[in-house]
């Protein structure tokens, strides 16, 4: 790869805490290497701010290898920026050229209140999992792992759904701020496996109930979630969730635990 350096203008959302009003602030960063990751470019900006004794920009990040789901920037109008199947931390600066302006915002959804600058509160996702995103099996209860063969195709589909990193890009990308892709990924992961079968009805109903309670919007089949999902979680999961939910409600056994 050809390396080069660039100067950029950044317009970044600043917000002191969840109660105060936010605003865009403009910064210049110079001499950014095309080999840097997007967050390393933010490191440079923050070091610059600290050197000027100004407050650096707060943003969530941890593993920086695309798997923890912590990073969450809305870049030039797209969740995690322009690259397909990529988290913000894996986006690299060779995407940009000298003189570009980049606008960076937090995830915007009522169910993800801003904590500071680009950091949002995604604990609603934990509560949705608490509502049923598990198999009720205590430690020590298990039979031999090979006692029950599972069709490879089913196992692979389940894995593809379980690859969700819970970052919330699906919610941020959706005009309705719906969490259907996230919920459907978990319901699919477990419904596709025999171990998840006994609870599949209550799980679908309870997780949907919790999602509504958290204030996420409805799904209107736009598909922005799938397009922006860094892990390629498929819309087919939403179709499966709808089938699971309807099946549960009409069979009368999906009253939920509430």
């Amino acid at each position: 790869m050809e390396h080069y350096h660039m100067n950029l203008t950044l317009k970044v959302w600043r917000q002191k805490n969840k109660n105060e009003r936010g605003r865009f602030e403009t910064f210049q960063v110079k001499n950014i290497s095309s080999e840097m990751s997007f967050l390393e470019m933010f490191d440079v900006l923050n070091e610059q701010l600290v050197a000027e004794q100004k407050e650096p920009i707060a943003f969530d990040h941890d593993c920086r290898e695309g798997i923890c789901g912590m990073c969450s920037m809305y870049i030039n109008g797209r969740a995690h920026g322009p690259w397909h199947h990529t988290t913000t931390c894996q986006l690299h600066m060779r995407e940009y050229k000298d003189g570009d302006t980049i606008v960076v915002e937090p995830w915007r959804a009522n169910s993800f209140p801003v904590i500071k600058d680009l950091v949002v509160d995604r604990s609603s996702f934990d509560r949705i999992i608490q509502a049923g995103g598990y198999v009720s099996v205590n430690t020590g209860n298990a039979v031999d792992a090979n006692a029950l063969p599972i069709e490879k195709q089913k196992a692979d589909e389940s894995f593809a759904a379980a690859a969700c990193i819970g970052c919330g890009a699906c919610v941020a990308a959706c005009p309705n701020a719906s969490a259907m892709l996230f919920v459907s990924a978990k319901v699919s992961h477990l419904a596709l496996l025999p171990q998840g079968d006994p609870e599949r009805k209550t799980r679908a109903v309870n997780m949907i109930q919790q999602m509504d309670k958290e204030g996420f919007g409805s799904c209107t089949n736009i598909g922005a979630c799938e397009a922006e999902c860094p892990k390629g979680i498929s819309l087919e999961n939403i179709a499966r969730l709808n089938r699971e939910y309807i099946g549960a409600v009409f069979s009368g056994s999906g009253e939920g635990n509430a």
Partner: peptide, 22 residues
């Protein structure tokens, strides 16, 4: 060995062969 059993029971989707085994 117990760990693998426990994880499979929780629904951890380990890689499988065409015969359905791990």
């Amino acid at each position: 060995a117990n760990i693998i059993d426990q994880c499979v029971a929780q629904g951890v989707p380990f890689a499988r062969e065409y015969g359905g085994l791990l």
